[in-house]
Amino acid sequence: MKSIIVDDEQLSREIIRHMADQIPAIEIVGSFSNAMQAIKFLNKNEVELMFLDIHMPEFSGFDLIETIKSPPKIVMISSDRNFAVEAYEYDFIVDYIVKPIEFDRFKKMFERIKKRYAKKENVAKPSTNGEQTITDDKLYVNIDRRLVKIDIPSIDIVEAKGDYIKIKTDKKNFVVHCPLKRIEEKLPKDKFLKVHRSFVINIDKIVDIEDNSVLIKRDVIPVSKGNRNELRKRLNLL
C-alpha cells in the first residue's frame, strides 16, 4: 500500500515511518513536512494511504484535504482529540490516532483498513488495455490522456451514448470513450446490473421501482422486459 506521511514534526514522521516499516504491506513513498509539498507529490503520484497531521503551520491537515481532488485513504494523526468527530465526516478518513502513537494502536489501524477495504469478490482484476483500471473499489478512467479515479460505490448510473459512456456519480459526471459492455464487465456484479441496453445501474442507489423503470436520484431509468426478472431477484423483496 503506497503511503505518504505529512507532518510538520520530524519526530512524528520518524516514528510513523518506523512503525510503518514493521508492516510489510505499507510502503512509505514520501514523507513531507508541509501540506504544499504533499499536494505536489499527490498530483503526480498514485498514493493509497496518507498519514496526515492536523496541526501544521499555514496549511492544516483539513486544508490539505479540502484542496486535493481525489484524496487517498487518510489516517489522521494528532495530539488533539477534539477533531475526531469532524474527521469522521469525511468518508476517506479511515482512522484517527492520538499522539503519542503506540505501535499496538498503529497495527490496529492497519487491520481496520485491511478489513474495511478487503477486496470484493467480484471486482475485476486490473486491465492492461489502458482505458480502465480497477484497484479494489476504485476505477480509473482515461479522460483527455489523464487517468481519473472514481470510487465505484459512488457510481449511480452508467449510460451508453454512442461510442461513449456517461458515468454519473454522487458528485460529478464523467464522459469516457468506452463501450458500455467493457465497464459492465469490470463493475462488481453483486452491486451493478444492466437493466437496459443503454444503462447499467448501481442497485444500492435505487429509490423506487415501477413495472418498467427504476428511479435513481432524479433519473428515471428504463428497465427492459428481459431484465426485469433479474432485477427482482437482486432486490430484497418483502
Partner: peptide, 9 residues
C-alpha cells in the same frame, strides 16, 4: 501544541 506532543513523549 508541538511542545505538548513532546511532553507526551
Amino acid at each position: 501544541h508541538r511542545i505538548k506532543h513532546k511532553m507526551g513523549m
